[in-house]
């Protein structure tokens, strides 16, 4: 049974999900689930286009980009009842997120989420809303750690990977661990999981990759895959990212290392032995080929992998969870996936 890479979550999961939803039941609600409220998609798309072009502008220094992104990112609404505290985990400054009403519950699962930002900008604030909605949707208590790993160009590869591994080492003994990441953070999450596999260390029960950036070779014009700007229609549809910005970030992060090194571009790694993956890609995202190529490679390597393609949405739309109905649903999907993997035999 376990050999089936596309195997469905088992019936007990479905039933448990149902019982949970039923118990929480809001029988007063006439609207079926899935009819989420949010800012109209077109409006948010326009806004994200403005923010994206302004914050991810390769013509301005990274320092300025970071300030701009922080300004935009802090305006994101966070779910109510979400506790946030800064702490140092494994020597890395980290943000801890938890649901305040669940604090006293039994030992929680730890979710380590790596934020996006091209390895050069951003911080845990980018992913607070997304991770908060994942915690809300999970069927058992989860606490999240969002490491503020070191950024390029000041600290190029392997600084970020070292920080990621330091955090994962520190939490490995504290109970079940799941890992997620968005954009560059998703690449980091996958690279760190691969490094732990190679080292023979314990692996997370599941990995969620939201709009992952996995092949820096495509941005630097190195053979081994497609080029980032090969589809002009896709370049035009992507309102957030530009090939030029991705290229500057990739160059800064690589710091002279080959972008085809699997530790930099985990798409080039041997994936065998990885835990179940959920790959969420957006249709109007320059990076969506990376996630889809990963899903195909995972299938060939016998790694259970679920691919979800959000047609008509932009890069990192999940980070607008709470504001955008589709973003909330992406977080909910991630939560259901992680909960299901934690319920599978062999993890506790």
């Amino acid at each position: 049974m376990s050999a089936d890479p596309t195997s469905l979550p088992s019936a007990p999961l479905a039933l448990a999900e149902e019982a949970r939803a039923g118990a929480r039941g809001r029988p007063g609600l006439l609207a079926p689930p899935g009819l989420g409220l949010g800012v109209p998609r077109g409006l948010l798309r326009g806004f994200m286009g403005l923010v994206g072009r302004w914050a991810f502008d390769p013509a301005v220094p990274f320092e300025a980009q970071r300030r701009r992104l922080a300004l935009a990112g802090r305006s994101l609404p966070r779910p109510r009842g979400l506790g946030v505290v800064g702490e140092v985990v494994g020597g890395v400054p980290t943000e801890r997120l938890w649901l305040t009403r669940r604090r006293a519950a039994d030992p929680a699962v730890t979710l380590v989420h790596f934020h996006g930002g091209g390895y050069c900008v951003g911080g845990p604030f980018v992913a607070r809303a997304f991770v908060g909605h994942v915690l809300l949707g999970a069927s058992r208590p989860v606490e999240a750690l969002l490491p503020a790993y070191r950024l390029a160009p000041e600290a190029p590869f392997p600084a970020a990977l070292e920080d990621a591994l330091a955090v994962l080492d520190a939490v490995a003994e504290q109970g079940p661990v799941v890992v997620s990441g968005d954009s560059a953070g998703a690449g980091l999450a996958l690279a760190a999981t691969l490094a732990r596999r190679d080292a023979g260390a314990s692996l997370p029960a599941a990995v969620v990759l939201h709009c992952p950036w996995l092949d820096l070779g495509a941005d630097l014009g190195v053979a081994g895959g497609g080029r980032r700007d090969e589809d002009p229609a896709l370049v035009a549809r992507d309102v957030v990212l530009s090939p030029a910005w991705l290229a500057t970030c990739a160059e800064a992060y690589c710091g002279g290392r080959s972008p085809l090194d699997p530790a930099v571009s985990p798409l080039h790694a041997d994936l065998r032995g990885l835990p179940p993956l959920l790959v969420q890609v957006a249709g109007d995202d320059l990076l969506h080929p990376d996630g889809r190529r990963l899903a195909v490679a995972a299938e060939q390597a016998g790694v259970p992998c679920q691919l979800s393609v959000a047609v008509g949405l932009w890069h990192d739309f999940g980070m607008q969870a709470g504001l955008l109905a589709a973003g909330t649903r992406a977080a909910k999907q991630a939560a259901a996936f992680l909960s299901g993997a934690l319920m599978a035999p062999g993890t506790s």
Binding site: L13, A14, A21, P33
Partner: peptide
Amino acid sequence: RPEVEAEFMAWVEAQSR
């Protein structure tokens, strides 16, 4: 997705009551 189906069925069940 199975969880989407489960959620819908739970809603139908609760709503039908």
